[in-house]
């Protein structure tokens, strides 16, 4: 979450993650009611809110990061903070800050029209989620509204690191390949290099959230080097596979 433990540390962490070989960084905008998140991300959001993080400050932080790193940045939020900010203003300010796109957890494709059109006007990517529960018809719609990549949810449930990969990931990625030529990223429950090894042939990118935030939580005093080391350790999982980095995808057009 952006602002956990504070905005300045998040900015340093993003730069360090990029140096550690992370292809895209998702910046979570904290929200008081994180209905899709497990305990680790919930606690991170609470810390971020307590540190005073909010959308304007996060956009300012994106500007600051852009002075140091071209790493693709995806804003990741629940709908209400963005709705309150205003879609038009959000898209304009996001592009001005140097962000590459956004993903709104609780914005269904059915309700996404006004948001997507403002994002398109500014040339920002809109990433949507695909779930194991999504029908093929829904996957088609998710792919149509997504640009940059599609985010495949590996398991039905809330966010959280798991020891074992979900069996639902592979069939979902297969169905998505049939529905779209966009790159596919897969997330939810991914916490170990072996998971990356296993997913590398199936997806174009792997999203690690809770496992990274848990590392941050365990090293609140000095999180930046630990989190960067953790990302390097995870990337070991790709060494055994030929990996086409996802930042060759359209999201890296900025």
């Amino acid at each position: 979450m952006a602002g956990d433990p504070d905005i300045a540390t998040t900015a340093k962490m993003v730069v360090a993650l990029a140096q550690a070989g992370v292809d895209i960084v998702e910046l979570g905008v904290p929200f008081s009611e994180p209905i899709a998140d497990g305990p680790v991300i919930q606690r991170s959001g609470e810390r971020a809110l307590r540190s005073g993080a909010n959308l304007p400050r996060i956009l300012q932080m994106v500007r600051d990061i852009r002075q140091e790193s071209p790493v693709p940045l995806l804003l990741f939020s629940y709908l209400n903070p963005v709705l309150r900010y205003g879609f038009e203003r959000f898209a304009a300010d996001a592009v001005a800050s140097g962000a590459d796109g956004a993903l709104i957890t609780d914005l269904s494709v059915e309700e996404a029209g006004p948001y997507v059109s403002q994002m398109r006007r500014q040339g920002l990517d809109t990433v949507f989620l695909a779930a194991p529960t999504s029908t093929d018809q829904r996957l088609k719609r998710v792919a149509e509204l997504s640009t940059g990549f599609v985010y495949a949810i590996a398991r039905a449930g809330v966010t959280g690191a798991r020891e074992q990969l979900s069996a639902a990931a592979a069939p979902l990625l297969g169905r998505l390949r049939a529905a779209t030529s966009l790159p596919l990223a897969v997330g939810f429950g991914i916490s170990r290099p072996e998971h990356l090894t296993e997913l590398a042939p199936l997806a174009d990118g792997v999203v690690v959230g809770s496992a990274l935030v848990r590392c941050l939580e365990e090293h609140q005093q000095d999180p930046v080097p630990h989190v960067a080391d953790f990302a390097r350790w995870l990337r070991e999982g790709f060494k055994t596979q030929r990996h086409e980095p996802i930042h060759k995808s359209p999201i890296h057009k900025s």
Binding site: D106, S108, E110
Partner: peptide
Amino acid sequence: GGRYAPETLMHPLE
């Protein structure tokens, strides 16, 4: 009103 939910819940709501 409407249906503003994470994608995982959308088909169950349908």
